[in-house]
Nucleic acid binder design. Sequence first.
DNA 1: CTGAAAGCGCTTACAG
DNA 2: CTGAAAGCGCTTACAG
Lengths: 337, 337
Amino acid sequence: MSPRVRIADVAAAAGVSTATVSRTLSSPGLVGEKTRERVMAAVSATGYRINAAARDLRRQQPRAILVLAPNLANTFFSRIIAAIQDVARQAGLAVQISDSRAGTDVLEAIVQSGRADGIVLLDGALPPDMVRNWTLPVIQLCEWNDGYALPGLRIDNAAAARVAVDHLAALGHERILHVSGPAENVLSQARQAGFREAMTARGLPADIHDGGFTIEAGAAAAHVWAAMADRPTAVFTASDECAFGFISECYRLGFEVPRDVSVIGFDDVDFAGHFIPPLTTIHQPRARLGRQAAERLVSALLEDAPLGEGYDQIPPHLVIRSSTTAYRAKTQGGSAA
Amino acid sequence: MSPRVRIADVAAAAGVSTATVSRTLSSPGLVGEKTRERVMAAVSATGYRINAAARDLRRQQPRAILVLAPNLANTFFSRIIAAIQDVARQAGLAVQISDSRAGTDVLEAIVQSGRADGIVLLDGALPPDMVRNWTLPVIQLCEWNDGYALPGLRIDNAAAARVAVDHLAALGHERILHVSGPAENVLSQARQAGFREAMTARGLPADIHDGGFTIEAGAAAAHVWAAMADRPTAVFTASDECAFGFISECYRLGFEVPRDVSVIGFDDVDFAGHFIPPLTTIHQPRARLGRQAAERLVSALLEDAPLGEGYDQIPPHLVIRSSTTAYRAKTQGGSAA
DNA sequence: CTGAAAGCGCTTACAG
DNA sequence: CTGAAAGCGCTTACAG
C-alpha cells in the first residue's frame, strides 16, 4: 500500500505539531478538546499506527515481555502462555516467546536485545551464571533454580506429594510406589522428597522408581510394577501423562485400575477427567499460575518497582476421581503377569 | 547492571568509529582483519549487545514474525508454534505471538505496530476486510478463508475425509456417521464436504451430526449415536479429542470400540496412539506444517520477494491403529443403550 | 495548551 | 578499509 504513515503526516493533516499528535495519543488529558478531536480525526483519516521501534528507542523501553520455556511443544505450557499473553495484552505489552533450550548464545542475544522489559522463565535448568547476569526483571514460574536467586511462583510440590500420600493412606494403602520424573528436574526432586517424607512419617517404606514425565515412562513403569514381588497397591506418578501410560500398559498386561492398583497423577491436564478411569490427580492451576506471574511482573514493570524477593507457593489441590479406590485385601486380581 | 553499553562505548574501547563497529558486526567482510579483531575484543570486553529498537528503526525492518492463533491454550498449536519458532530463530528472526481473538482493535494495533515483518495466520475466522488491508506478508496455516485472498498451507481436508471413508468402506462398513466440527469452521466444512462426496460416490447415505472439536462434543455425540434407530457401525469424528470423548462415553453406555463401532479421529495428537484402544486417525504433520509455512514466509522476507500465490496442500495420511475393525453382521453387541 | 528542538542508538550512503 | 554525518520516527523537557 502507501508508504507508512508517520506522525508528521498526521500532524500535517491536523494542522498541529508532531508533539501535539504524540500527546494526544499518549496523554490525551494534556491536549485541548478541539485539538484532540482534530488530531483523532486525522489519525483515523490517515490510518496512522505508532511505529513501535521509534517509540521504544525514544522511551528506552520496549513494552514487551519475554516468555522462556523449555520445549514449546509441550502442551503443559500452552494454557500458561495464553494466560500470560492475556495479562500482557491488557497492559499494552507484547509477548515474545522463545525456546529456552535454544543454546546460550542465542538466548543471550534474545534476552539482551533490548526487545523485552522483563522475563517469565519456565525453565529451571539453565546455567545459573548466565541467568544471574541478566539485568531485566525475571520471574520464575513452575520450575525454579536456587542458583538463579530470583523471585517466583509455583505450586507447593512437596505438599502435593504429601496430599497424594494422605489420600492413598486414608484409603488403606500401605504399599505405595512413586514413579518419579527425571532425576535432574527440580519438580521431580521436590515431589520425591515430599513423598519420601510423607511415607517415612507414617512408618511406611518409600518405594521409588526413576521414571519420567512421558507416556512412555509410565508404560515402562507398569512393567516394573507388574514384576515387583509384592506389588504396591497404589502408585503416585510424576505427571498425568505418566499416569496415562501406566494405566494403559497395566490394562494391556491384564490389570485393571483401580481394581488392581490405585493411581494418582500430577497436573490435571484437560484430558484427565475424561480418561478411563477418570484420573485422580493433583491439580495445577495453569491459567492462574500464568496470570499471577504475569501480573506480578507487569505491575513491577509499570510501576518501575522491583519485583520483590518472595517465592509464592500455591497450596496443592487434589482432584479425586475414579482411578483411586479403597485398598482391599488381596483378591488375586489381575488376570496375568 | 551498568547502564547499557552502546555502540559508541565499544567504538571508544576499540579506538575506531561506530561505523566500523557496526560493520564488524553486520558485514565483517568489509573490515580489515586487525580492526575486526580489536572490535570483537572490545565487544566481548564491554558485553555489548545490539539495541534492537535502534537497529529496527534505522533499518526499517523489525526482523520478527508474528504468529496469530485463535485460543493459544489449544494444544493443537503448540507443536506448530515450536516449529515456527525454530525456523525463525535459525534465520535470526524473533517470534511474537498473539491471540487472534483479542478483538479487532487490539489486533490492528499489534499487526500495524511495525514490530513484525510478516505474519503466520492460524485463524480463518477474522473479518476479511481487516485481513485484506494488512500490508505485511501473511501466510495462512491450517485454517483459511477465501475472503483473505492470501497464500497458505494446509493438509487436504476433503481428501482426508475421503481416505477415512475409503478405509471404513474397505472394512465393510456401509452405515457411517460423521460427527462434524463447528458448522462455521472451514475445516469442518471441508471435511464434511469430503465425507459427503465420498459417501455419495459409493451410493451410501451420508449421516452427519453437527458436533464440535471437543471431548464434550464427542461425548454428546455418543448419546446421539446410541439413540439412533439403525446405529451406524462406524464413526468419523471431527478431531481426536472428539473421538476420545465419543469412545469414553460409549464405554460408559456399555458399548465397546471397535467391537460395537469403529472410530476414526482427526489430527493424530500425541496421545492418540496411547489411547485405549489406540486410535485410527488422520495424521496432521504439525511440525512440518509449522516449519514449511515459516520457511516460505522467512525466505520471502529475507529475499524481499513476494510470498507467491499458491496454496500448498499436503496429502492426507491415515494412521491405522486399533479403533477400527472389519464390519461384522449384527452381533447384538453392546450391553445397553 | 502548544511548538521547536534535541536526542534515543543504530546503519549506511558518501567521501576519501 | 575507515570515518563523519545524516536520519530512521518517535517523545519530552523546555519555553512561551
